[in-house]
């Protein structure tokens, strides 16, 4: 048995996957930047900043991503800001996953033993230099596996943006199903494409992890 409907629609799905990849890459970049800044503020900020960070974290982690997307799509236009679904999707996912990324980075920074800070301080290093040459290089290694994990969740979450009208992989799949009336084949194809994206990321993550071992 040859999955005719899937084969016929596969190029269409791949075009959707391109948008998903674009959305994912931009959101990963944004959430990484947000996460990094938030983590640093959370660890090193003065009390009022830390409190502001905590509020952001509780808000974001306590509200479903879909609700935030709806808010962006239905509520934001009333304030005069009207974003197209792609830009809006990148912003919302970036800010949402930024909260999770910040916890990945924060945990990595805090997991560095006090003795490393002691050694750096005793050599006369000041905070920025310490972060740059002692803390970050080690924290990145610690953060790599949970970072990859968060990226995989992010990629899968991009399918939600189809609900507010962004044409990407999930939306392309739904259209293909309506055309071909072969939901099993098409959704299997869609799932396979998501799986390949996430699996190759996981594979790359494991490769990085191995390459970054201290003992060479």
């Amino acid at each position: 048995m040859i999955p005719q409907a899937l084969i016929r629609n596969f190029p269409y799905l791949l075009r959707g996957a391109e948008i998903t990849l674009l959305l994912s890459a931009a959101s990963v970049a944004l959430s990484t930047i947000v996460g990094m800044i938030v983590a640093l503020l959370h660890v090193f900020g003065v009390a009022p900043i830390r409190i502001a960070v905590e509020i952001y974290l509780y808000l974001v982690r306590g509200v479903p991503l879909l609700i935030l997307l709806f808010a962006m799509y239905y509520v934001l236009p009333y304030t005069g800001i009207d974003l197209d679904p792609l830009t809006g999707g990148i912003l919302v996912i970036g800010v949402y996953y930024g909260a999770f990324m910040s916890q990945v980075f924060r945990a990595a920074i805090l997991s560095l033993p006090q003795s490393q800070w002691d050694a750096a301080r005793s050599l006369g290093m000041r905070r920025l230099l310490m972060l740059q040459i002692v803390v970050f290089p080690q924290a990145f290694r610690i953060a790599a596996p949970p970072f990859v994990n968060t990226c995989m969740m992010l990629i899968k979450s991009t399918s939600l943006v189809s609900i507010i009208g962004l044409w990407e992989l999930t939306m392309a799949g739904r259209e293909a199903v309506e055309r071909s009336l072969a939901p099993f084949q098409i959704f299997a194809g869609v799932a396979l494409i998501y799986f390949c994206m996430c699996y190759s990321l996981a594979w790359y993550g494991r490769y990085l992890e191995k390459r970054m071992q201290y003992v060479h």
């Binding site: 003795s115 490393q116 002691d118 050694a119 750096a120 301080r121 005793s122 050599l123 006369g124 040459i133 002692v134 080690q138 201290y214």
Partner: peptide
């Protein structure tokens, strides 16, 4: 600090 050297019990080299 940079003019005082210290050596720790657990070495604390940068791995």
């Amino acid at each position: 600090r940079s003019s005082i050297g210290i050596v720790f019990q657990s070495f604390n080299l940068f791995p």
